[in-house]
Design a protein around this nucleic acid. Sequence first.
RNA 1: CGGGGCGUGGCGCAGCUCGGUAGCGCACCUGCUUUGGGAGCAGGAGGUCGCCGGUUCAAAUCCGGCCGCCCCGACCA
Length: 491
Amino acid sequence: MAEAVTPRDEDYSQWYQDVVRNGQLAENSPARGCMIIKPNGMALWENMRDQLDQMFKDTGHENYYFPLFIPERFMEREAEHVEGFAKECAVVTHSRLTQDEEGNLIPDPDSKLGENYIVRPTSETIIWDTYSKWIQSYRDLPLLYNQWANVVRWEMRPRLFLRTAEFLWQEGHTAHATREEAVEEAERMLEVYSTFAEEYMAMPVMQGRKTASERFPGAVDTYCIEAMMQDGKALQAGTSHFLGQNFAKAFDCTFTDENNEETYVWATSWGVSTRLIGGLIMTHSDDQGLVLPPKLAPHQVVIVPLFFDDDQEGPVMEKCERLQEKLEDAGVRVKMDDNHTQSPGWRFSEHELRGVPVRLALGPRDLENDNVEVARRDTQTKEVVPQEGIVDRVLDLLDEVQQGLYDQAQERQEDTTHVVDDYDTFKEVIEEEGGFVWAHWDGTEETEARIQEETSATIRLIPFDREEREEGEDMVTGEPSEGRVLFAQAY
RNA sequence: CGGGGCGUGGCGCAGCUCGGUAGCGCACCUGCUUUGGGAGCAGGAGGUCGCCGGUUCAAAUCCGGCCGCCCCGACCA
């Protein structure tokens, strides 16, 4: 059954679907564009969520919860925000169903709502309406809050985890007395995302700011982290927005400062979603299926006991259970696969498809020699080692895997990042190799749009230190460029 | 919304050109033998062939309409 997963170079998007399915992460749902997140996928998300949540708490944030439904009129308040989200909003118009003459279920005309609700595509509007009530004085600031929630954006072309009509995410919404403080907050949270991506997901990212056309609707500035996938396309993995006073003005949110002057509040918002799982998959997984970094894997180690008759079962299981205990005492997430009905080979493959970083197999032969077989998922290597010191060996191995995955991804990102000066070469690189391309840009939307039109590559980000790098000439127009920006085709 | 492909047991597919009452692999159930890289044999269960209509003695197959899914674009985290 080696063909459980379609090879990447044969059909990349089929490979992706195969990895998601075989990894037991998620499947399509009867509701179009939505996904059913299976226990293995949810456990992965929970690990990501718990880690991020801790990092938010460590930077002074608290959680709260806002409703799923937002009064429709709120969407009209901020002009750019409406424009950005109106065309992908689900709308609730009735409160109950009834049957028509033919017995078909229809929305009950008598239950038409006096005011429509939209299902939140993001929560800025309802939150800023509320903040305007919570904030009076500079003494009320800052507000540093976050919520874990689901949101709905009615998408045309869904892809499990990468783009689904409903997805899980977190959205932080902060309020500040000064512009500087808000900008700092947006930068701080981008840094948190970057640290999380690199240290936990083992996914190297580029940081920068978005161009006006890629900016969050309603933001003054959008910061982002971008990661490079194995097929040469970039993935926006997280965004952090400096919202200026746009939402404060739209929702009349003011405070009285130390000088008794009424001022609009400064805002940020920032979010990452279950899309990160898509990024994780496309960063590390291979033709054998899912590969997960130990820090986030639902199970870091799986123990597969091997026994061939009832006499062997007792001693083998006893040894395996003790091993499990010792590993758990050391803080390792361990799964014991004592499934009697599947052959060892089947179970080995299953855990590989699920991306478990380390597998320990222990049978009668190992019992005799005080050995245990250790296999690592990322390199597909295995060795037989003494049981003595196995816990330390496993702990070291998990660190090695985590680091190895990062190094490999980092190396690939470097190999596929190009510096290009002329447009012909740019087109060639984008079409044939993909990856990131640093090139000069004159700063106009026209040029940006033309490049996208002709190559389908977009400006993924403008580096924060652009001005400090070298100046040059736009590769298309020859106009002056303040510095290179990062291009790529993207998800 | 454009262009392409596809809807047949749980999953993957064949059958359709040339109409004749549905088949294969995997999975599932029972039993025995097995088990260090997706085990073998024997028996068994499971399908109104996406939906609606038409042609016909007879439709998975031909004709018309509709629905859905996947891939490639436009939109997007």
